[in-house]
Simulated assay, not measured.
Amino acid sequence: MAAFILAVPPQSPVEPGERAFQRCLACHSLQADAESGPRLQGVFGRRAGAIPGFAYSDAMKAAGRQGLTWDAPTLERFLSDPDAVVPGTTMPYQGGPAAERRLLIDWLRRSGAAARNGM
């Protein structure tokens, strides 16, 4: 009698940074064609308020005109206290633990959030 063993590929565990990103999904996506809030694909190196056609708050558009560009330190400050970095922003997220923010930012960087085509 032949025995068959069915090999089930292991599911990859969800990284802590990706788990933290789940909170962002109500408003953000990494997909280029996302119809939710400003997509985070290409966020690193991108000027704030720069995605054409997205209805940013006046505060975010002004911050971008004044040179605010997203990088790890700026994202850390913004995610810690959005209104302190962009007074009047409509971003509702308030922090979370610093270690979680660092994991999220690192995951974003590795998951396609690096700037492309000057965006």
Rank of each mutant, 00 (worst) to 15 (best):
R39P: 13
V43H: 00
R46H: 03
I51Q: 13
D33A: 13
E35L: 14
E15W: 08
A26I: 08
A34Y: 03
F44K: 08
R19P: 01
E15C: 05
R23A: 15
A26Y: 00
S36V: 15
E18F: 01
Q41W: 00
A48Q: 02
G49A: 07
A34N: 13
F44Y: 12
S36Y: 00
R19I: 06
S12C: 00
R47D: 01
L30C: 06
A48H: 01
R46W: 00
P13W: 01
D33E: 10
Q41E: 14
Q31T: 08
G17Y: 09
Q41K: 14
I51H: 04
G42Q: 09
P38F: 01
D33F: 02
R39S: 11
G49M: 04
E35F: 04
S12A: 13
P13E: 12
P52E: 15
P38S: 05
G37L: 10
V14C: 01
F21Q: 08
C24S: 06
F44I: 09
C24A: 04
Q22R: 15
G37S: 08
Q11L: 02
R39Q: 12
F44T: 07
G45P: 12
I51S: 04
Q11F: 00
I51K: 11
R46T: 04
E35P: 02
Q41T: 11
R46A: 14
C24K: 06
G17A: 09
E18W: 00
I51M: 12
R23H: 09
L30M: 15
G45A: 09
Q11G: 00
G53Q: 11
L40S: 02
P52I: 05
F44H: 03
S12I: 00
G45L: 10
G37I: 09
P52A: 15
G37P: 12
L40T: 05
E18D: 10
G49N: 04
Q11P: 02
H28E: 04
R19Q: 14
G42S: 10
R23F: 11
Q22Y: 05
E18N: 05
A34R: 07
L25E: 10
P38E: 02
L25F: 05
G49V: 07
C24P: 08
G45I: 10
G45F: 06
A34P: 10
V43G: 00
P38Q: 04
Q22I: 04
R39I: 06
G49W: 06
G42H: 11
G37F: 06
G49T: 03
R39V: 11
R23S: 13
V14T: 14
E15R: 15
A20E: 15
P16C: 13
L30H: 01
L40V: 08
G37A: 11
Q31R: 13
D33C: 00
A34Q: 09
A32S: 12
G45K: 10
S36R: 15
L40M: 15
A26D: 03
E18S: 09
P16D: 14
G45E: 04
L25M: 12
R23E: 06
H28P: 10
P13A: 14
A32V: 11
G49D: 07
G42W: 08
A20L: 11
S36F: 03
S36D: 12
V43Y: 00
R19S: 14
L25W: 02
